[in-house]
Each structure stands twice: as structure tokens, then as C-alpha cells.
Amino acid sequence: MVGIWYNKDLFAEAGLEGPAATWEQFLTDIQTLKDAGVTPIAVGEGDKWTGAFWWEYLATRIAGEEAFVAAQNRTGSFAAEPYIKAGEELLRLVELEPFQDGYLGATWGDEATVIGNGEAAMDLMGQWAPGAFKENSADGEGIGDALGLAPFPMVEGGNGDAKDVIGGGNGFGLGKDAPDEAIDFVKYLTRAESQQQCAEVGFCIPVVKGGETGLSDPLMIQVQEYFSQAEYFQLYYDQALTPALGNVVNDAIQGLFAQTMTPEETAQMIEDSAVQELE
């Protein structure tokens, strides 16, 4: 599950509690952080999928589940107004210049280094992020207890719910002739006790009720809570859609981050590819 990881110490330096709950306040706080000499956000936009999270979250908040399903089954369009609006909101963020130097060429590894070294306040990333922050930091320790997790802010007037989340998915693929033992094994893996054990050793975040008792890391408990409260779970666009379309999304969003494409052009580029891929 993707959420906003933030550095509590850097927020405190700017006199703030943490990431705001609404998008307008979030944008105001970006300026507050900058005024306090803090780099608000780290992003490794050279990898593209990293920054695409920002647009996808805005799209999920503004366009919501229905618009996505419609665009995907081709009764709707990715060039529809809410998707253009998502681009416009992202552009408002980009225009505040909230990112670390050289973010257009940086990788996710660079992004994790910036956060791990305490050089930027926020990072929109999945639940694997805390480990990466540690590994990529100069001292191998990361920022320790200063790391917090907050949900992506709600966007005023959007169709999506503030509790909806974006994330990845895993599943077990079984052949149609798979023996009963295989099915039993999957049942065994997904029962509450196994999920609990799996969480205890830090291998997974439980997806079955009752499994969450195995979690001890407060951040992972938080991830599990956000995840279980969500009404709608949006799979990353580059996994929910075909590989070609998903990568067009990532390429198009980079144009917004570099301010070389307008929100209309971005949405149209995605829609053009959707026409080709999904129809």
C-alpha cells in the first residue's frame, strides 16, 4: 500500500504536525516547509513509476473508482475532465518546486537515500519504503523513530473517498488441473494463523482478519489499518492496465514533472494509448 512517509523532525522544524489531511492545506504546507529551509518531497522521477504515484493518487481522489473502471472498460475516457484535473493539481504541486535537486534524473534508490539521510520531509511510496530508507542511508540506520506514515490527503470536491488507497497486489496462480493438495496449501497459507506467523517474521502484511495480531512494527500496523479501512483499493496503473498503457502513463506523467506537457496533453497521450490497447 502506498502512503506518505514523512520525517517528523523536519515537519517539527517547520512548526507542522505532519502531512495535511486536505490537498489545499497540503500545498500550503509545502510552502511552509520550503520557507523553513526543508526540502518538502523526495522523488526519483528518472524511474517514472515513483512520480506516477502522485498522479495516480490524485486521479483516485478526484476521478475515483467509477471513472477508472469506466475508462478501463472503455465506457469512459482517460482524457475525461477529472483526469485532466488530476494533472492540473499535480502541476500545482510541481510548480512549487518541492523536490530535491536533480529529481528528474534520480532513481528510486536516490529517492530513498534522500529520505534515509533526513534530507527531505516526505515520500509517496509503498510499505517497502522503511527498509529501503535504512539500506540507502549513509549510516545504514535511516531516520529511525522520526519516520511516520500518513494517508494521501483528500482532494476537496473529488469523487474518490479519502480512505481509498493505491497499492500493489499479489495472488496465487493455480492451474485449472492443479491437484487438491495445491488448493489446500493455499488455504493453509491464507488462514489467520499462517498470516499471523507470516507477519511476525516480517514477511507479509496480513490480508485476512485476525492475522494483524502478528504485526509488531507500529508503521506496518498503520499500513494494515489504512488498508483495511479502504472502500476501494486501486491497483497501480502500470499493473492494472496493460504493460504498454501502464508505461505510457509513467512516461506521460514525467512530462508533467518536467513541465514540458500540459495536463490536457498528458491525459490525451494516455487516452490515445488506451484506445489502442483496450479497444
Binding site: 522521477e45 528518472g46 535537486d101 536533480g102 528528474l104 534524473g105 534520480a106 518536467a258 514540458t260
Partner: peptide
Amino acid sequence: ESRAFLGDP
């Protein structure tokens, strides 16, 4: 000033 050699188009 430092430059983003690979991040600057």
C-alpha cells in the same frame, strides 16, 4: 552552483 547533469534535459 551544483547541477543535475543527468536530470536536466
